[in-house]
């Protein structure tokens, strides 16, 4: 059973790598925000898996709860902040075409 949890968390890390592509290379700022949000929600599951692997769930569940809260607030604040800046959202291909 412990082995299964170990492989599950490794698989979760692999999935987070895929989401990281969108967070790094995303054409617009909001695409990056989506990538960060996806990584955050996977981290919440990963933290509890780590807790089960180390047999300390009662400690890691608090960290996971705080991380879920923090992830939500971070996404909310970032999306409120970035909506005020104009011209930031033009996709690179389109701006190249205009020139």
């Amino acid at each position: 059973m412990d082995d299964f949890f170990l492989y599950a968390s490794l698989f979760l890390c692999l999935i987070m790598m895929i989401s990281l592509y969108r967070a790094v290379f995303g054409p617009t700022v909001l695409d990056r925000l989506i990538g960060v949000n996806a990584i955050g929600s996977k981290t919440t599951a990963l933290l509890i898996l780590i807790g089960i692997i180390y047999h300390r769930v009662e400690m890691f569940v608090d960290i996971a709860l705080a991380y879920a809260l923090l992830n939500f607030i971070a996404v909310l604040a970032a999306s409120r902040y970035f909506q005020k800046i104009k011209g930031l959202y033009d996709e690179p291909q389109e701006s190249l075409k205009r020139k």
């Binding site: 909001l30 996404v75 909310l76 999306s79 409120r80 970035f82 909506q83 930031l88």
Partner: peptide, 9 residues
């Protein structure tokens, strides 16, 4: 919130 930011931009 993310959709709203996209629409406003």
């Amino acid at each position: 919130a993310i959709v709203d930011a996209g629409v406003r931009a």
